[in-house]
């Protein structure tokens, strides 16, 4: 196995790993706040569930980026390409935007959504506002995903 393919695999691993950690931390935090609300008022379960799902998207973006890298380097088809070190570094660099932004935005979005759970708990009619505020953080994860995707599909093999 060439150095290039190892670097590309590290990139694929980082995209899933870091973005996944961000999402897990974010979802976990909102889950804690949500379970506090549901323990008092179970009827609010569906409303707080939407907030809990929001920080989970970063993990999906990381997973999608990893799949694309694995597909491009031929690992999924069982016919791994012979990549140069430069090409491998290209894939590694391409994974970084979603890996790093996914990690940080997942945690931050978790905090925002958990704070939004308080809005849902006290004023259920204003649940939409809590969702919008948490969703604003998502913008930057989407931008990072776009950059990662554009880089992954444009690395010349």
């Amino acid at each position: 196995m060439s150095n290039g393919i190892i670097l590309a695999l590290i990139g694929a691993a980082l995209a899933s790993l870091l973005a996944g950690i961000g999402s897990a931390k974010g979802v976990g935090l909102v889950g804690e706040a949500a379970s506090g609300v549901v323990s008092v008022d179970p009827s609010k379960f569906s409303k707080v569930l939407i907030l809990e799902l929001l920080p989970g998207t970063q993990g999906l973006y990381g997973f999608l980026s990893s799949l694309l890298i694995l597909n491009r380097i031929g690992i999924l088809g069982g016919n791994a390409a012979d990549l140069t070190t430069a090409q491998g570094l290209g894939f590694l660099a391409a994974s970084l935007p979603i890996a790093i932004v996914g990690l940080i935005s997942g945690i931050i979005q978790g905090g925002t959504a958990a704070a939004g759970v308080s809005i849902t708990a006290k004023k259920p009619d204003h649940n939409g506002k809590a969702i919008i505020m948490a969703a604003m953080v998502e913008t930057y994860a989407i931008l990072a995903l776009l950059v990662s995707l554009l880089m992954i599909v444009n690395v010349a093999i």
Binding site: L29, A114, V117, A121, K122
Partner: peptide, 19 residues
């Protein structure tokens, strides 16, 4: 985001505040 270990407790308290 300090005090996040109180997330569950704060969620419960906010729900109880409506009463």
């Amino acid at each position: 985001m300090s005090g996040t270990k109180y997330a569950k407790a704060v969620g419960a308290v906010r729900a109880m505040e409506s009463s």
